[in-house]
Design a protein around this nucleic acid. Structure first.
Ligand SMILES: [Mn+2]
Ligand SMILES: [Mn+2]
Ligand SMILES: [Mn+2]
Ligand SMILES: [Mn+2]
Lengths: 219, 219
DNA sequence: ATATTTTTTTAGACTTATCTAAATTATACT
DNA sequence: AGTATAATTTAGATAAGTCTAAAAAAATAT
C-alpha cells in the first residue's frame, strides 16, 4: 500500500514520460509536483527500494513494469472521477482537476470498476485524455500541438495539456472546446501567434503560450 | 485545513457523544479509532490548540461550536457518500463504510452540495443514520435498542449501531433490513436472547450481542 | 481511609514527508 | 580541455503521527 505522496510521484513520472521512454529528471518531477528537488530525491530512493522505479543517482528515473501498472491505475481513477464530476455532477472542465487529484487516491478496486460501469465505460476524460481500461490498455491518438499547424491547416480540437482552472477558463472565453473545428487563417512570424477561426464564426488571435497547450487532429 | 487524522478524531468525539453531552474519554476515542491512548492524548492537545475541542487533562474532551460544525460536515459527507455507493453504484450496505471512511475527507464544498442534489437530498443513509443538511440540521428519531423490547412488542427496524461488514452480512442472513417489521415472540431470561418474527415469515433466535446493535421504532 | 486497579498522561523513540543550505556531479560554453 | 553554470544529491532541521513503557492521577473496592 502506497502513501498519497508516493502515488503522486509515480503519477508524475508516468505523466512526464508518457510519450517518450527517456528517463525522467529530478527537476521535472519537482516542478510537476511543486516540491523541492531534494524531496524528490528522497522519494525516488523510496520508490526504487519498493521496485516501482529504476533509479540511478544523477541519471533520472523510469517506471518498472509494476510501477507502470500502479501509475496507470491512478491515471484511470483520476480520469474516471473527472468524467463523473462533469457528466453526473455538472461540474465544468476547469473545476475538476483538483478534486480528482484527491479522489484518485481512494483505495477500492470495486469502486473503480463500478464507477467505470456507471459512466458506461468512457474512453476519454473531459480534457480529451484517454482513460485506461481495467487492464491498463488505452489508445494514444495521433495528435498535433496546435502551434505546429501552418496557415491553411484545419483541425479538430481533441485535447489540452494544461488542466489548470485559469487556462481552461480562458479557453472557454475563446470558445475552444473538445470536438470543435479550428482553422489557421494566418500565422505571425513575429511571435508564432495564430489567427484562427473556431467553429462556425469566432475568430481570434491565439498566442503561442496558449496554442502550445492545445492538441488537434489534423483534418 | 485539517489532516485526515485530525478529522477522524473529531468525528470519533462527535459519534461517541452524539446522544449525550457528557465529555468523551481518551480511552473511548482510542477504542473507536483503534489507536493507542497516548496517541489520542497528543491529538486532543492539538485539537484543543486549534479550539475545536475543550480539553482538560484527565477530564475528557467535548467539541466546541466550531468543532461540532466540522464534525457534522464530516458525518454529512460520510453518509452522503455511503448513500451514493448504495443507490448509484449498487454496493450493499455492508461494503460501504470503509470506502466512505476515505471519501469523507475529500475537500470540496461544491462537491458535497452537488452530490447531495444528485442523490435528491436523502434524509437517511443505508444504515438508517440521519444525514445532516447543508446547515448541519438533522433529526434524531426516537428509537429503542432491540434488546430493550419485551415479549409481545412489535417494532420497525430503523437503524444499526455497528457498520462492520461481518455484522451486516449476518443481519442479511437473518433477513434483517431497514423498514422491516419485527415482533418479539419471547425473551429468554438465561441470556436475554430473543425469539423474533421478522417480516412475514422468518423466525429466529437473536442473541443479545446482536440485538444490542439494532434500533427499532416501537409500533 | 487505604490499597488496588484502571485510566490517562508523559517520555522517548521511530517513520514519513517536507524544507533550506551546502556539497557534489554533470553539462554547456569558450 | 578547463571553467562556469546547472542539476542533483547530501546533510541537517522540523512537524505530524504513531508506538511502547513508565509515571501519575483518578476511580473502585475493601
Ligand atoms: Mn493526487
Ligand atoms: Mn483530465
Ligand atoms: Mn475517515
Ligand atoms: Mn452509515
Amino acid at each position: 500500500m502506497l502513501t498519497v505522496s508516493e502515488e503522486n510521484h509515480l503519477k508524475a513520472i508516468f505523466k512526464i514520460s508518457e510519450r517518450n521512454g527517456t528517463p525522467v529528471s529530478t527537476n521535472k518531477i519537482a516542478h510537476e509536483l511543486n516540491t523541492a528537488a531534494a524531496s524528490v530525491t528522497d522519494m525516488l530512493k523510496r520508490l526504487s527500494a519498493k521496485k516501482l522505479i529504476k533509479y540511478e543517482k544523477y541519471q533520472g528515473a523510469h517506471l518498472t513494469e509494476q510501477g507502470n501498472q500502479l501509475a496507470t491505475r491512478l491515471v484511470r481513477k483520476h480520469r474516471l472521477w473527472e468524467t463523473f464530476l462533469v457528466e453526473k455532477l455538472e461540474f465544468s472542465w476547469d473545476e475538476v482537476h483538483q478534486i480528482a487529484e484527491q479522489l484518485e487516491h481512494i483505495q477500492s478496486e470495486t469502486l473503480t470498476e463500478r464507477l467505470d460501469a456507471f459512466l458506461d465505460y468512457p474512453r476519454f476524460d473531459p480534457h480529451g485524455d484517454p482513460i485506461p481500461d481495467r487492464n491498463g490498455k488505452f489508445t494514444l491518438r495521433k495528435q498535433h500541438v496546435l502551434d505546429s499547424l501552418e496557415q491553411g491547416d484545419t483541425g479538430i480540437i481533441i485535447g489540452v495539456s494544461n488542466h489548470d482552472t485559469d487556462f481552461l477558463k480562458l479557453l472557454d472565453e475563446l470558445q475552444v472546446k473538445l470536438g470543435v473545428t479550428i482553422s489557421i487563417l494566418s500565422k505571425f512570424d513575429y511571435d508564432d501567434s495564430l489567427k484562427v477561426r473556431i467553429g462556425e464564426s469566432a475568430e481570434h488571435i491565439i498566442p503561442k503560450n496558449i496554442s502550445k497547450n492545445i492538441y488537434v487532429k489534423k483534418a
